[in-house]
Nucleic acid binder design. Structure first.
Lengths: 146, 146
DNA sequence: TTGTTTACTTGACCACCTCAAGTATCGGGG
DNA sequence: CCCCGATACTTGAGGTGGTCAAGTAAACAA
């Protein structure tokens, strides 16, 4: 073992550490969103809207029922952060697109997130690269597992 | 730069990676909890109950309003997973304790989580140690930041 | 004792989430 | 062509999680 690292973290310890960081990050996101008048769910949806996206696709991304999306988009649309447009090639489909204001709001939320995340600045280039590599290896196995 | 690692991950890339892993882990947790008839919030509460814990302490841990905890504990208590006991030294306080059944359920949820988290097994001892060290450095800065 | 603070509950209200049912459209056979 | 099954979305009912404001009870301090 390399003397520069801790003895031997258990799988459980790593899981707890990941959970703690995940929770903290989620709370940061929620706080940034709230600061701009959004719930975390609304911010999450807005963050997905790079281009027009059918309601169904949104439900798939959020891993939730389609009827749920209706309500979320209703509220975003009521605040003019988002628009429903008919799909030209399939009249059943409604594409959701972010308005200028919507794009603006989510941009500010992202900025606020980055600003508050100084913890990542304490890593030097090598450390960032190592962390990125290890986390990237973790991600694929993190999907639906049965 | 050490030739063994990727070029140079940006802060944003690392944030996205952490977010993706956090989301995946949370969904796993929710699924495991649901499999045992619990919502993720209920499971989270149950997981905190190593010993008797006042309602207020629970609210602090969950970073939410005290009145919210009342409802959550109501539902857990209705299913006999948890009990409210009067605090002997302060009659205002009600201590929440997990019942045998409650402990059993949360134990099974934890087991299911570990079982499904094979991704961590792909790391060797050195890698785990390195990851643990880096994540541990990240955690402190992940708290309330303004 | 009187007043302040703390712990918990209640009720009103909203967001989110699911399920079941309904409407409209699409697409593929007869 | 018409019918029929699948798909996209909405609606409504019902439950959970979350906040805030107000109320009760107990502790505590002056």
């Amino acid at each position: 073992m390399t003397a520069t690292t801790s003895p031997a973290p258990t799988k459980l310890q790593l899981m707890e550490l990941l959970a703690a960081i995940g929770t903290a990050q989620w709370r940061d996101f929620a706080a940034a969103a709230a600061h701009h008048g959004l719930t975390s769910t609304q911010a999450k949806v807005l963050a997905q809207l790079d281009g027009p996206l059918p309601m169904r696709a949104l439900a798939t991304l959020l891993v939730c029922d389609a009827s749920n999306v209706t309500g979320i988009i209703d509220r975003l649309e009521a605040r003019a952060l988002v628009r429903r447009e008919p799909d030209p090639s399939d009249r059943r489909v409604k594409n959701v697109v972010a308005t200028d204001e919507g794009r603006d709001v989510i941009r500010r939320v992202r900025e606020e997130m980055q600003a508050t995340r100084g913890a990542l600045d304490t890593l030097d280039a090598d450390e960032s690269a190592t962390l990125h590599t290890l986390l990237a290896r973790l991600r694929p196995g993190m999907e639906k597992s049965a």
